[in-house]
Write a protein that binds this DNA or RNA. Structure first.
Length: 323
DNA sequence: AAAGACACCAACCGCCCAACC
DNA sequence: TGGTTGGGCGGTTGGTGTCTT
């Protein structure tokens, strides 16, 4: 690892974290805070490198993590931001409270990328695929996303064919089909050129979902954020649902089936206009990312919600008792 | 029922950069 | 001023679960 000589000298564990390791790290950080990561493993009694501890904390143990499914706003937000900043996941994550760059990156690669391609949009350029396809064919481009998926693409000049979902895994396509059904050529263009939040769309979207199971998990996650992102049925490395099925793309539904459906859905995005406007890294983005949230009622402040929680409460530490 | 294919995601790797000495 | 260290980031990999054949 070159400069990170510590990792070579010390016997460091690799691979998945055990519940005991999680507990040690969690207890240490919540008690003493994040100082020098390189000293954390020793002080916390872990045989991990500091870098690994940092990653584990940031991507998994951190109390303010939202976890669970991405809401439609979050999806739109990611697409919109990616259009502007590209693969700068950290920048995108900074605008999505409770989400990590790694999480967003994975979600993009496993879900959004394909969704965009299905919509006839090149995920790299955010332009219609038909144009790029021609260019790529001419230049023999070996881009992974395009080259792998391109052979399956229908003729994008035929709008009727665009409506046909590709032959993805029948279960996993579940959400995507619902989305695709909603997306006429016009609406799809709107999605790209101007993000539009459509509650009805979401309502229909959810109508196909078993109200129990995956969904309940997410519901608890968002509205009952008292447990810092650890839900009561937390298991090591997994956020399980009542049906015992771990989260997957299949369960990426909007947030609530309660009477507060839309409200919690709105707030679940955890995005506020003032937060966006504070983003000085790329001012040109601001104008782009404001419109999806116009008119959105944000009754809860995700950040505040989290800040009000006590990270050292027994409830939070209780998560490890379930492991 | 079993094997292969596929999808997801946690974690690792390597590079970059800023801070420190 | 140059070397070292630590943190951050994006790309990639490998394990695991699920689906298809």
């Amino acid at each position: 690892m070159g400069r990170h000589s510590v990792f070579v000298k010390e016997k460091t564990r690799k691979g998945l974290w055990s519940p005991e390791e999680d507990e040690k790290l969690y207890n240490y950080i919540t008690r003493f805070g994040v100082g020098c990561w390189s000293s954390v493993p020793k002080l916390a009694g872990l045989q991990r490198c500091g870098k690994s501890c940092r990653l584990r904390w940031i991507n998994y143990l951190r109390p303010d993590l939202k976890r669970g499914m991405f809401s439609q706003e979050e999806e739109d937000m990611i697409v919109t931001l990616h259009k502007v900043v590209g693969n700068r996941w950290a920048q995108i994550a900074a605008k999505l409270p409770g989400r990590t760059d790694n999480e967003i990156k994975n979600f993009w690669n496993s879900n959004l990328k394909k969704k965009l391609i299905k919509q006839g949009i090149d995920p790299n350029t955010h332009k219609p695929l038909s144009e790029n396809y021609q260019v790529r064919n001419e230049t023999n481009c070996t881009d992974k996303a395009s080259s792998l998926l391109m052979p399956k693409l229908p003729n994008m000049s035929n709008s009727a064919e665009i409506e046909q979902p590709f032959h993805f895994n029948s279960k996993r396509i579940f959400n995507s089909e619902a989305i695709t059904r909603q997306l006429t050529e016009v609406s799809r263009n709107q999605l790209v050129s101007k993000q539009v939040f459509d509650p009805l769309f979401l309502y229909e979207f959810q109508a196909n979902v078993n109200p129990i199971g995956h969904y309940v998990h997410h519901h608890n996650q968002i509205e009952g954020n008292q447990d810092f992102g650890f839900c009561s049925n937390f298991q090591h490395g997994q956020m399980t649902t009542e049906s015992g099925i771990s989260d997957s793309s299949t369960s990426r539904m909007s947030t609530s089936n309660s009477s507060n459906t839309m409200i919690s859905h709105y707030s679940s995005a955890g995005i506020q206009m003032n937060e966006m406007l504070e983003w000085d890294a790329d001012n040109k983005i601001d104008s782009l990312i404001q419109y999806p949230y116009v008119g959105i009622k944000n009754e809860e402040n995700f950040s505040n919600n989290n800040n009000n929680n006590n990270p050292l409460s027994g409830e939070n530490l209780d998560v490890f008792h379930h492991i």
